[in-house]
Design a protein around this nucleic acid. Structure first.
Lengths: 144, 144
DNA sequence: ATATATTACTATCTTTTTATAGTATTTAAT
DNA sequence: ATTAAATACTATAAAAAGATAGTAATATAT
């Protein structure tokens, strides 16, 4: 009923990068900002690059940038790449009876719950998150 | 984005018990029917008893029975007891900024997705599953 | 009373996930 | 060219989750 740590980290990093206005972030900087274990974060960033969400540049002043438009990347896409929304057995039950013709009793409510969640995650892009973040910033400025 | 194995096993067992018409099931029998590892299933059944979903009787002819009315137990309750829907950090992000006053950017979409799912799971009781199962049985009988 | 079928408890093993370490490679500033 | 700041690769360690094993306790049928 939860995301695993790796996925959480990924969403955290991408969310952070999407909402700030720099375009290039070093692993070291992200580590310091987000408290994600340094080495683990590095390999995660490499993975995110391999998955096509980011692109990396090596060497001095290197780092990671989004490889796609923010509006093209939604939460479900990221989760799917990292832990596989689909890879997982579609049915919550291992009942062998749960096949297309004759789904198991748990099939329907689970599919319903699951698809609603996926729908929301699919409809939320990092562009949406950025917009929301900017709005929040504005609101806070007004308060001061 | 998934349930862990233990929770899946629990739902499988309870679903099986709820839809059949016997009231007492031995761990051994359930193991044979459901292919859940024998020993692991036993301790899971013990846990489910401790959580109050089942009650156990030792000795010859012993086994496990529901300790509550089927309509009193819904999917969310079981998941919650086993892996904690609530225990988990409410926010998908570890951002320290994500507190009641100032939730993080991911907070809203995640909460929305999550609460829709929980709603469906909460609205599905084992009595519902039993009913559905009986209906399905009837349909199949007609076909023959 | 005894034997048998069952759950209960505690410890250990295995697998997966998460985290770390060392070294190599890349690239820009100097 | 050299140095420094960065990513990339591979291997290993630690922690958590899943699974197994042995033995004790319980209770019913006979």
């Amino acid at each position: 009923m939860i995301l695993n740590k790796t996925t959480e980290y990924a969403l955290t990093v991408l969310g952070f990068m999407a909402t700030r206005n720099d375009n290039m972030y070093s692993a070291e900087y992200l580590h310091q900002q987000l408290n994600i274990p340094r080495r683990y974060l590095r390999s995660l960033l490499t993975d995110l690059s391999k998955h096509g969400f980011l692109k990396s540049s090596s060497g001095r002043n290197g780092g990671f940038v989004f490889a796609q438009e923010l509006k093209e990347i939604n939460l479900a896409l990221v989760i799917n790449k990292l832990e596989g929304i689909d890879a997982i057995c579609n049915c919550i039950l291992g009942f062998s009876c749960c096949i297309v013709d004759k789904p198991c009793i748990m099939h329907e409510p689970w599919m319903e719950a699951r698809s609603k969640m996926i729908e929301t995650l699919t409809n939320t892009t990092f562009a949406d998150l950025k917009e929301k973040y900017q709005m929040d910033l504005l609101k806070n400025l007004k308060l001061i």
